[in-house]
């Protein structure tokens, strides 16, 4: 278990920036990622990075609009994935 960073929202925002958006797009933890252009390839890359970085498994059933809409909602999802079942 990797343990999640305290500032998970910021860590996820960093991942989103690094993986998905070119240049210095003005993103915040509440930016609507779908409106910013998150597509199926982007979702796949986010899942790969999240699983690698935070050592959690994101099930297919968690790939919903609610969970992937912002860095903040992603953080909530990652915490749920990391919680013991």
């Amino acid at each position: 278990m990797h343990g999640l960073p305290a500032n998970l929202e910021d860590a996820l925002l960093g991942l989103v920036r690094e993986k998905l958006f070119e240049g210095g797009a003005p993103l915040t933890v509440e930016t609507d990622l779908f409106a910013a252009g998150l597509d199926s390839m982007g979702i796949m890359q986010l899942m790969i990075s999240i699983e690698e970085r935070f050592g959690v498994r994101v099930p297919e059933s968690a790939v919903t609009r609610d969970n992937f809409s912002t860095a903040s909602s992603l953080a909530a999802m990652v915490r749920r994935c990391a919680a013991p079942a």
Partner: peptide, 17 residues
């Protein structure tokens, strides 16, 4: 290294580790 790759490669090509 990730930032260096990101500026030059599509996202899926960036090494995960």
């Amino acid at each position: 290294l990730s930032a260096h790759c990101r500026a030059r490669l599509a996202g899926y090509k960036i090494p995960v580790r």
